Computed example of a mutant assay.
Amino acid sequence: MVTLRDPERGCAWDREQTFATIAPYTIEEAYEVADAIDHGDMAALKDELGDLLFQVVFHSQMASEAGSFVFDDVAKAIADKMVRRHPHVFGDAEIRDADTQTVAWEATKADERAAKGHDSVLDGVARSLPPMTRALKLQNRAARVGFDWAGPLDVIAKIVEEVDEIKHEINIEAEFDRIEDEMGDVLFACVNLARKLKIDPEGALKRANAKFDRRFRHVERELSAAGRRPEDATLDEMEALWIDAKGIERKGERKE
């Protein structure tokens, strides 16, 4: 990385990069690591972890050039943090189980935020996180200080309320900004329901995406076999094929 960034013999593209321009690549590489894990491809995982590590090295080198920190500082900082947050492993603290460890972990993080001068329980939840992930983290933080629904049924009632509100905005032909605002409230409430049910909303949506992809491809295949295209079929015809796809899936589940 030092050579790539060398002013005289380095790569022009690498020399031109900044923290801001590299950040999207860092995020992309993290997603590619997750994709390799999702596919169970260990060879790809090895490669993608290397790509992700390269991103850390890239940022560290730019920081080094600015006189801020070097790669070793990054490694030491995370090592120190892990020791600090695991007193039951590296110290004499007694922690009975994983749930107790989670409480202790969060307490340590809260102390660290306070030491940094943060005055809100929401401080430190990165604004650059995917919106659904950030919603979940914000809700979890608020719940730790008691700002939470009693149970999932209470959240469902809130979802119904939010749906009624967006229906009202649609009926009165409100401005786009109002409808978008209400749509956000519906999605935020849905994330809250997933949280109360101990379901990862990203994982649930991922499953729904895969299900839609699988079933719609069935619709396309069946229409193609009949010499037709989706745009040539009626909605009722496609809906019938969609229901057929669901039936096939249920039969497969029963066999398993």
Rank of each mutant, 00 (worst) to 15 (best):
M1Q: 03
L4S: 08
R9H: 11
G10F: 00
C11S: 10
A12N: 09
E16K: 15
A20T: 12
Y25H: 10
I27M: 05
Y31H: 07
A34R: 11
A36H: 06
D38G: 03
A43F: 07
A43I: 07
A44I: 00
E48G: 04
L52T: 05
F54T: 10
Q55P: 00
H59M: 13
E65V: 01
E65Q: 14
E65Y: 04
G67C: 07
F71R: 07
D72T: 14
D73C: 00
A75C: 09
I78Q: 15
K81I: 03
V83M: 14
V83A: 10
A93E: 15
A98V: 14
D99K: 15
D99P: 01
T100R: 14
T100I: 03
T102W: 11
T102L: 15
A104V: 07
W105F: 15
E106R: 12
A107Y: 09
K109G: 08
R113D: 09
A114I: 10
H118T: 04
H118L: 09
D119R: 15
D119L: 09
S120D: 14
S120H: 12
L122F: 06
V125F: 13
A126V: 06
A126Y: 09
L129Y: 05
P130H: 08
P131G: 11
M132G: 09
T133S: 15
A142E: 14
A142F: 13
R144E: 15
V145K: 12
G146Y: 08
F147C: 02
A150R: 14
P152N: 06
L153K: 15
V155S: 08
V155R: 03
V163P: 01
D164P: 01
E165N: 03
I166P: 01
I166H: 08
E169L: 10
I170V: 09
N171Y: 01
I172V: 07
E175Q: 07
D177G: 04
R178W: 00
I179C: 08
G184E: 06
D185L: 01
D185R: 05
D185A: 01
V186E: 04
F188C: 01
C190Y: 03
V191D: 01
L193W: 14
A194H: 13
L197T: 00
D200V: 01
P201H: 11
G203S: 14
G203H: 14
K206E: 11
R207A: 10
K211N: 02
F212M: 11
F212W: 12
D213Y: 12
R214E: 15
R214G: 11
R217C: 04
E220F: 05
E220V: 15
E220N: 13
E220M: 10
R221Y: 07
E222G: 06
L223W: 05
S224H: 06
R229N: 07
R229F: 04
E231T: 07
E231C: 06
L235W: 04
M238N: 04
E239T: 13
A240Y: 02
G247Y: 04
K251M: 03
K255E: 13
